[in-house]
C-alpha cells in the first residue's frame, strides 16, 4: 500500500501575541511547526506503515524553509519527501493550491492520500476535498479512526457535531484527519540523523502535471480585497478593586443590564 501525506508548515499561532497598544500581531520570532492536523495525518500514515507495511511519502508546498517540515516528517519515519516549490505557485488561494498538489500527486502511486482537516493559519478545511475532486477520487473528511482490511476496503469513523458516522470506501481515496485523533510520535535520534542524509525531491512547475493558468495568483478565483487589523474594541471599563467592591460593581452592572 502506498500512502501520501500532504502537510503544511505554519506559524505556531499559539505563540503569536498581540501588541496591546496597537492591537496588531507580533510575529517576530514565532517558530514554524508542522500544522497539527497534518502531524496527526503523518502519525496515521506511520501506524499504517507499522501495521500494513505501507510506503509513506510526504509532500508539502511552500517556500524553501518548508524543507524543515519535511525533515521532521522523515525523522518521524516517513520513507520519501517531496518539496513543491516554484514562483508560479505563489499567491495561491485554496483552489490554486489544490491544483498544484493534485498535479504533483498525479506523478505518484497512491492508495490513500491523507491531509489534515485544516491548517491553523487559515482554518479553511478546503484543500483536501479540492485535491480529491481534481483527482476524481472519494473523500472522507473529519476522520478520527481508520481500519483497513488488508485488501482494498477502509472503514472510517468520521466525527460530526453530535457523534460520528461509520463509512466504508475502497482505495484510492483521500481522508482529512483531526489532530486529537492521533497523538504524533516523537522523532527518534536515529531518525533525526538519517533525515538530514536523505534526499528531498524538489519539484517545480515543470515536474508536475497541471495547467499553468490554474496556479498561483492567476489560478485563484478568490482575491484579498483588503486586510485590516480588527483593532481594539472601544475600551470597556476596567477596575482594580478589592473583592467586596468588585462583587458590588458586578452586581450593579448586571442589574443595570437587566440580567439580574
Amino acid at each position: 500500500m502506498n500512502i501520501v501525506v500532504c502537510i503544511k508548515q505554519v506559524p505556531d499561532t499559539t505563540e503569536i501575541k498581540i501588541n496591546p497598544a496597537t492591537g496588531t500581531l507580533i510575529r517576530d520570532g514565532v517558530p514554524s511547526i508542522i500544522n497539527p492536523d497534518d502531524k496527526a495525518g503523518l502519525e496515521l500514515a506511520l501506524r499504517m506503515k507499522d501495521l500494513h507495511d505501507a510506503h509513506v511519502t510526504v509532500i508539502t508546498m511552500g517556500p524553501p524553509q518548508a524543507d524543515n517540515a519535511l525533515r521532521e516528517a522523515l525523522a518521524m519515519g516517513v520513507d520519501d519527501a517531496i518539496h513543491l516549490t516554484d514562483r508560479k505557485f505563489a499567491g495561491a488561494d485554496t483552489l490554486a493550491t489544490s491544483h498544484a498538489l493534485a498535479g504533483a500527486l498525479r506523478n505518484l502511486t497512491f492508495d490513500l492520500i491523507i491531509t489534515g482537516r485544516q491548517a491553523i493559519d487559515g482554518d479553511t478545511a478546503q484543500v483536501g476535498p479540492q485535491i480529491a475532486e481534481h483527482l476524481d477520487i472519494a473523500q472522507v473528511s473529519y476522520l478520527r479512526k481508520l481500519d483497513y482490511d488488508g485488501k482494498r476496503t477502509f472503514t472510517i469513523e468520521r466525527s460530526i457535531e453530535d457523534g460520528y458516522e461509520i463509512l466504508e470506501t475502497e482505495a484510492p481515496c483521500l481522508v482529512t484527519v483531526l489532530s486529537d485523533a492521533f497523538q504524533a510520535r516523537y522523532m527518534t535520534v536515529k531518525g533525526i540523523m538519517e533525515a538530514y542524509a536523505k534526499e528531498v525531491k524538489v519539484w517545480g512547475f515543470n515536474e508536475i502535471e497541471v495547467k499553468e493558468e490554474d496556479l498561483g495568483l492567476k489560478g485563484s478565483p478568490t482575491k484579498v480585497h483588503k486586510a485590516f487589523s480588527r483593532g481594539v474594541k472601544a475600551a470597556g471599563e476596567l477596575y482594580e478593586l478589592d473583592t467586596d467592591e468588585a462583587v458590588g460593581t458586578i452586581i450593579s452592572k448586571l442589574k443595570e443590564k437587566f440580567i439580574i
Binding site: 498581540i18 496591546p20 492591537g23 470597556g236 476596567l238 478593586l241 473583592t243 462583587v247
Partner: peptide
C-alpha cells in the same frame, strides 16, 4: 491587568476570579 480579554470586555475586573466568584455566589 494586561490580559487580552480586557480588550474586549465591557466590564473588566482585575482580581482573583475564584475569590470574586465565591463572594458573588454568596451575595446573589
Amino acid at each position: 491587568k494586561y490580559a487580552p480579554i480586557f480588550q474586549v470586555a465591557d466590564l473588566g475586573i482585575v482580581g482573583d476570579a475564584r475569590q470574586i466568584i465565591k463572594k458573588l455566589n454568596d451575595r446573589l
